[in-house]
Design a protein around this nucleic acid. Structure first.
Lengths: 191, 191
DNA sequence: TTGACCTGGGAACGATCGTTCGATAGTTTG
DNA sequence: CAAACTATCGAACGATCGTTCCCAGGTCAA
């Protein structure tokens, strides 16, 4: 019985380390198959399942499902996906956060003016440009020639920029409010 | 005069599309070099510059500088890389956050016990299993058959789980502390 | 102008690749 | 129990790979 999930996991790890696939012989060594024909069969299976694809040059490349991750719910103590194929929610982080790649920019957060909104210095904000902003959105505005991350709100029909930190003042733009984009996601890396 | 930056940009584009490199002949077609020897020379230069490396199998792989990406800094008002859109989409968030795919699980956060650490309900924690935890890490522990997200700390040589919210009590495990994994990243989506 | 130097093209070569074809062992089906 | 199927192995094969060497054309300094 072939253990394709384990093979796939090995491949994913190797790819994460090197950003490239090894040759068939290397894959064999990696996953514990001694024959290239076994590797070939295994890869064909993964290809059918959508984990792998081929480039125009007929080279191996990661398929759409290659980067999927399992989302575990915090309520169940059942450990992650032993054989639980049924209610398995998967997603790739890219697709989850970035809907419009060409208009999406990452901005590293400076300062703690949004700390009460769970946005800390060093975090990376996923910013979508030319996106209609509404009151309640976190936005990247341009104030005094600098990017600034604030909560967009409305006071007396006038847009204002509110920090999420009592130590900072509310910004009431004099002229036109210049928006760079809307924050659609947030990413933080520990360690 | 060789136009290495342009060559590199082409390579990065191709890689962003396929997550894999073409063979030398394909690279030649891609960047406009008609001879594999020229390609070889060009790649050697890029290798020296740190954009490319070799795998243990002596295959081409992206080097540390290959994914260099202008993360817009909040200090400058100069808009991010207007002309050079090509090298922009190379770094994916998956690659940024997930180092070890087979041991990484996503866990959706429930409750506000970590709110002061900037972790809100609905956020998705990137959890790496079987990863040595130290005091100061945010960890996913198993308490009463449920996942729980807490800050790992040490009191009198004993590990304890501290919430980041004064409304919750510190958890001092009676027996052995059961850890599910260490939180290495955090993702949030707005709207 | 000459000659060293650099860059890209072309051809040849051995190494390595991925495919293919049986054979084998273990499991499932009838 | 026999037959069919599956997953693997091992060997052989042509295709393709990346390297290497040499040459053509251009540039720059002497």
């Amino acid at each position: 019985m072939p253990d394709d999930p384990a093979y796939l996991a090995q491949l994913q790890d190797y790819y994460a380390r090197h950003r490239v696939f090894p040759p068939y012989s290397g894959i064999g060594r990696l996953v514990g198959l001694k024959s290239k024909s076994s590797v070939s069969a295994m890869l064909a299976r993964l290809r059918l399942a959508g984990f792998l694809e081929a480039t125009p040059d007929r080279r191996l490349k990661p398929g759409p499902r290659f980067f999927e991750r399992v989302v575990a719910d915090s309520v169940r103590a059942g450990f992650p996906q032993p054989a639980d194929d049924s209610a398995k929610e998967t997603l790739t982080l890219d697709e989850y956060l970035i809907e419009n790649p060409s208009r999406t920019v990452l901005v590293r957060v400076k300062g703690d003016s949004m700390i009460d909104a769970g946005i800390q210095p060093g975090d990376i904000a996923v910013v979508q440009r030319s996106f209609e902003a509404h009151a309640g959105d976190v936005v990247v505005a341009i104030v005094d020639d600098e990017f600034t991350l604030k909560l967009l709100d409305k006071e007396d029909g006038q847009y204002v920029l509110k920090p999420a930190n009592p130590a900072y003042p509310v910004i009431r733009p004099k002229g036109k409010l210049e928006l760079f984009g809307v924050v659609v996601g947030m990413v933080r890396k520990y360690r």
